[in-house]
Amino acid sequence: MPLDHVHPLNSLGFAKSPAETRVVVAMSGGVDSSVVAAMLAEEGYDVVGVTLQLYDHGAALAKKGACCAGLDIHDARRVAEKMGFPHYVLDYENIFKDAVIDEFADSYLGGATPVPCIRCNERVKFKDLLETAKDLEADCMATGHYIQRHEGSKGAQLHAAADGVRDQSYFLFSTTPEQLDFLRFPLGHLKSKAETRALAAKYDLSVADKPDSQDICFVPNGDYASVILKLRPEAADPGEIIHTDGRVLGRHDGVINYTIGQRRGLGIGGLADPLYVVKLDPDTKSVVVGPKEMLATRTVPVREINWLGDEDFMSREEWHLAVKVRSTRPPTDAIIRPLSATQATVELVTPEQGVSPGQACVFYDPDSTRIYGGGWIHKG
């Protein structure tokens, strides 16, 4: 008799009882992951909570609204004590610095606009922490991310969250098929953050009203320039602000103070028409500015592609999908032309403004909620 006739699948998809199913929950100390841990503990799963200390504990204690900081470690521990499951704190400072923070600084120095949250998921949470979960003999690892995992005919699929406002698919495109097999996202079906907070109140969790964490946890008050300057002092080297027609319009105090598409704070007032940053050239230490229409991009070179489709990426000359080239923009129709298993040229049907190297280009099914992976935008 098939096993699933003896034990129907539990809520995490295993043909055994919750008590026989060990799940490691990645706990940041925020309301989302705390609710996941409490929910699974109440369902009777063998829950093990793990929190990563990602950067200096002492400095983190004084900073509000950051994930994986000192106060958040304390909050995660309180949830574990209340719900009665073990909780461990792992020191990942060196791993986080090497895999995320250093690249963040170097990317800005190289004229790119990086997304460190994606690298953290890819290189720390879904790599090292996932392996730790396997070492703990867990059946799976659960997180508080707002994204959905569906079982398809050819394996697990990644789908956007039911709540489009909270959807985190842009930040999780690099999740590999092997990682997806092991991961679970119990909040992805919820329709709003209010439902999550209601669950936190139901479980009487101390974090029920805790504010959401900032996007970049290790950047105090959004001042990424100061973080980069500590790591790479040469980032403050001055240079020229140059118009696309070759005119020198002024000087700047470091390319790290500028991003593609920036209009305000350029330090070149008194001009008749508004100008925007259209290019950052770290080799000449130049900030290139021009009219808004020069920001429009139709062709986007993409590399380091993580493909999540059922068919081989190279099996077609073209993929007609929707893509998102910035986390705050909706998906737009595009034609993806593979160059190799990990590289492609993406043609946007409607040109987008402010496309920047270092950002992600995420692939979406235009007719469903499925995510087909994505890659990193680089300089053409």
Rank of each mutant, 00 (worst) to 15 (best):
E317F: 02
G254P: 07
I336Q: 07
K127P: 00
V207T: 15
P114K: 02
L199Q: 11
V346T: 11
V227A: 08
R247Y: 02
G375D: 07
Y146A: 05
E234L: 03
C140L: 05
L136V: 00
A60R: 14
A38L: 12
S169L: 04
T21G: 10
A142N: 05
E311Q: 14
L71T: 13
G110M: 00
Y276P: 05
V362A: 01
M294W: 08
T113Q: 07
R370S: 01
G270W: 01
V79Q: 05
A235Q: 04
V35Q: 07
T113E: 13
V23H: 08
P291A: 03
G155M: 06
A69T: 14
V23N: 10
D237Y: 04
S206Q: 13
S226F: 02
G58S: 14
A198V: 02
T328V: 06
L280C: 08
L172I: 03
S286M: 08
P338N: 10
G70S: 11
V302H: 05
L308T: 00
P238F: 09
K191F: 03
P331S: 04
E131P: 04
A62V: 11
Q353F: 01
L9D: 04
Y146L: 04
F104K: 00
V115N: 03
F363Q: 01
I73G: 15
H243Y: 10
A161N: 01
M83G: 09
A38C: 10
L61P: 02
V23I: 15
L339H: 09
P238S: 15
G261C: 03
V278E: 06
S28M: 11
G144F: 00
S226E: 10
V288N: 08
G111R: 09
M27V: 14
Y108A: 00
L90E: 14
H57W: 15
N306F: 00
Y203C: 05
Y88M: 12
G110L: 01
Y203G: 08
K193F: 05
G111D: 10
